[in-house]
Design a protein around this nucleic acid. Structure first.
Length: 425
RNA sequence: GGAAGGAUGGGUGAGAGGCUGAAACCAACAGUUUGCUAAACUGUCAUAGGGGAAACCCUAUCGCGGGUUCGAAUCCCGCUUCUUCCGCCA
């Protein structure tokens, strides 16, 4: 959620940036927000004046009784009783206004940073880096879903039997490969200064609101009715919520956390070939990195996080590219996002394996995560996170790109110490 | 799952309808002074919102949400959570 202060003070700029996302009603929404906020202040001022008056009169009652001035005390009681109705009326009016303002406020996405190129579709994203690791095959490469079956390392049908589509079972070297990748990613994050966290994978409503999954993405999360919990769609949610309603000492910034968790997504409405195999799952594993920074440092940190993710892909010897998302393709809460995509040798397309974003104060505002500055004033922090990395598509790209003419799959050098084997098949 | 007792500022902890946004102590920070790595003394020390150029003023908040009352940290109801005991259990 954007800060109301920022919307008020930089109305033209914020409107312009949000329009760039393609939200055509930006102007109307912002005008309405400001109107409601004016109204809010007006009612609040009136309400508070009345409360002050009421408090003052109520305080005199005790003294009057002590002095034996019974009639005056009774008169004071009557006066406050009468004012209570008016106070209640104003309180209700205020609540209505605040609810209206809130429901408008949550419609506003984050304002894209000035460095984000304007655009409408994924085609407008700019490729800011691409390595030269694309391999060409002198045989017809198999897609990962066939390779996985051939080597019996992932069992799709077993997953359907146990749970349903989108919940594959990893077996033998497939399971070990996954575990090796998780371990590798966590170790690398540790080396880069991230403290490892093992959070709960169920979250309550407040946490869902804190990072912005609720209310807008309600239907995308699995929900445990009996206990009112949600399964996490990403470790970002529990890890970032550690800092909900926390005031951090400036000297403790930046905070760098990482964590491995399974992630759960309902992916309601996704069907067809692009969800084939590991491309889109209901349950998958991911190592996430999160940073909480000073506002003036966040863009520097965004690049640092990208460099970390690219380092992982480099070490895995995967063909990949880095995209700067355009205004129209960015997530709702982000001010600037880079996506990392790996080349799928057999599917002949790019697969997104990481998304690294700076949310500026958009999450911090909801989280009420602040730091204390030199003047001992509290200010909202900037939050950032990125996948480092999401497992399934990395596995898909690894086995597709590393398949050999004899059908075997080579394990990248850096992983061999983790897997204990250098090839599958 | 059953029973009992708790939840107050960074920490310990008083307060038991009005004088309490909250004693006292500890920690922290700033200053004064004496001076061998420290002591003594003084002061500051919650968050959010509103008003004001500012000094400052007002409002709300004592786990959370309701209620009683002219007035609630204090009384009542519901919830959350912690501790202890019993039961169950990886």
């Amino acid at each position: 959620m954007l800060e109301i202060q920022r919307v008020r003070n930089n109305t033209a700029k914020v409107t312009e940036r949000i329009l760039a996302r393609g939200l055509s009603q930006a102007n109307e929404i912002i005008t309405e927000i400001i109107r409601l906020d004016d109204k809010r202040k007006e009612v609040l001022t009136e309400l508070e004046a009345l409360r002050a008056e009421n408090n003052r009169v109520a305080k005199t009652v005790g003294t009057l009784i002590a002095q034996g001035k019974k009639e005056e005390a009774e008169a004071a009681k009557t006066q406050t009783s009468e004012q209570k109705a008016k106070i209640k009326e104003l309180e209700e009016a205020l609540e209505t206004i605040q609810n209206d303002a809130y429901s408008q406020m949550v419609l506003l996405p984050n304002a894209p940073h000035d460095s984000v190129p304007e655009g409408k579709t994924p085609e407008d994203n700019s490729i800011v880096y691409e390595n030269d690791k694309k391999v060409s095959f002198d045989f017809t490469p198999l897609p990962h879903w066939e390779l996985a079956v051939k080597h019996d390392i992932i069992d799709w049908e077993l997953g359907v039997k146990i749970t349903g589509a989108g919940f594959p079972v990893y077996k033998g070297k497939g399971a070990i490969l996954q575990r090796a990748l998780i371990q590798f990613f966590l170790n690398e994050a540790g080396k880069a200064g991230y403290m490892e966290i093992q959070p709960p994978i169920f979250i309550n409503k407040q946490s869902g609101f804190g990072t912005g999954q609720l209310p807008d993405k309600d239907g995308q999360m699995y929900y445990i009715n009996e206990d009112d919990f949600y399964l996490i769609p990403t470790a970002e949610v529990p890890i970032t919520n550690i800092y909900r309603e926390v005031i951090i000492e400036k000297s403790a910034l930046p905070i760098k956390n990482c964590g491995y968790t399974p992630c759960f997504r309902r992916e309601a409405g996704s069907y067809g070939s692009h969800v084939r195999g590991l491309n889109r799952l209901h349950q998958f594993d991911k190592v996430e990195v999160v940073q909480i920074t000073l506002p003036e440092k966040s863009y520097e940190v965004l690049e640092e996080m990208c460099a970390h993710v690219m380092g992982l892909l480099e070490q895995l010897e995967l063909p990949f590219r880095k995209l700067l998302l355009c205004t129209g393709d960015m997530g709702f809460t982000s001010a600037k996002t880079y996506d990392m995509e790996v080349w799928s040798g057999a599917q002949g397309k790019w697969l997104e394996v990481s998304s690294v974003s700076n949310f500026e104060t958009f999450q911090a505002n909801r989280l009420k995560c602040r730091f204390r500055d030199e003047d001992k004033k509290t200010q909202l922090v900037h939050t950032l996170n990125g996948s480092a990395l999401a497992l399934p598509r990395i596995v898909a790209a690894l086995i597709e790109n590393n398949q050999q003419a004899d059908g075997s799959i080579l394990i990248p050098k850096v992983l061999q110490a983790y897997t204990g084997f250098d090839k599958i098949g």
